[in-house]
């Protein structure tokens, strides 16, 4: 357990999100249980936040105001964050152990879903800064944000290494293209061969209306449909990890639709994203 004195040496950097992943995790854990240090962290954050006080302020920016308000309910502004999510999805779907699937006990579905949700939470955790995690609501339905943050930081650190190691562990992955006039949307799919599991990420999609959800469908070589429902795991990010009765070699098309819940046996909504899948032995 970290001592207060050690924690406090890190706080000025911690509140800017500039500690390494391990320090960030340990400090965040300590702040959860130590209101005194949390107050210290708040005070340092407030002190940093005075620095911009002497910046020259711009004149009013009426066009910007319009842009900001128009963007509120739209997709994630800036395609590059979407790219970040896609890369994290890839890295996360990558089997992380070198042993063969046959001899390695597969992680449980719950563990895999957990780690997948964490990848999406990187969106928030990487940017907002560790300091703010102390200011998030904690109700029973929400996951432990500090644990999320820790895992998210670790995930981010692993990203580089995983992508380098990509060639060693073949995993099928592909993107679905938006249908019609839709722009910027991205659905990325990866198959984790080690545990026979499909990971599906959708970013830049507007929130599904109440009572509806985005559904991901495979059309198999036999013309059958298999579906899984995407859940919002971070603002603008929907994801799922599912064991579907289809391997890449069985699959011919992939489609995302918006469906009223519960989804039927076949899609009722129009295709929003779609792609043909070239059957692939691995």
């Amino acid at each position: 357990m970290m001592k207060c004195a050690i924690c406090r040496e890190q706080l000025e950097e911690f509140v800017l999100g500039q500690c390494d992943a391990e320090t960030t995790a340990v400090v965040a854990d300590h702040l959860r249980i130590c209101p005194d240090c949390q107050r210290e962290a708040d005070a340092w954050a407030d002190a940093w936040a005075t620095l911009p006080d002497d910046l020259p302020m711009p004149a009013k920016l009426p066009k910007l105001r319009g842009r900001v308000l128009a963007a509120l309910d739209g997709p994630i502004p800036g395609g590059e964050r979407a790219e970040l999510v896609r890369r994290l999805a890839e890295a996360n779907a990558e089997p992380t152990r070198s042993a063969t699937p046959e001899t390695t006990p597969a992680p449980s579905t719950r563990e895999r879903q957990w780690s997948l949700a964490l990848a999406a939470s990187v969106l928030l955790a990487l940017g907002v800064g560790a300091w703010w995690s102390g200011h998030m609501q904690r109700d029973a339905r929400r996951r432990d944000l500090v644990a999320e943050q820790r895992a998210a930081s670790q995930l981010a650190e692993r990203l580089g290494g995983l992508i380098r190691a990509k060639g060693a562990t073949p995993t099928t992955r592909f993107d679905l293209a938006p249908v019609g006039q839709r722009e910027n949307g991205l659905v990325h799919v990866a198959w984790d061969r080690a545990v026979n599991q499909w990971h599906v990420f959708a970013v830049d999609a507007p929130p599904a209306p109440a009572g509806s959800a985005y559904c991901f469908w495979f059309v198999t070589a036999a013309g059958e449909y298999v579906a899984t429902v995407l859940e919002e795991t971070a603002p603008g990010v929907m994801a799922t990890a599912a064991t579907l009765p289809a391997k890449p070699s069985d699959v011919r098309r992939a489609v995302v639709t918006l469906e009223k819940l519960p989804p039927g046996e076949r899609p009722r909504g129009e295709a929003l994203w779609e792609t043909a899948v070239v059957g692939d032995a691995q």
Binding site: L64, L72, D73, P77, L124, Q137
Partner: peptide, 18 residues
Amino acid sequence: EDTVVEVFWELWRARERF
């Protein structure tokens, strides 16, 4: 300007977490 759009988008879309 792009940054400001992103900041308020995030404030709005993550509002329930605050």
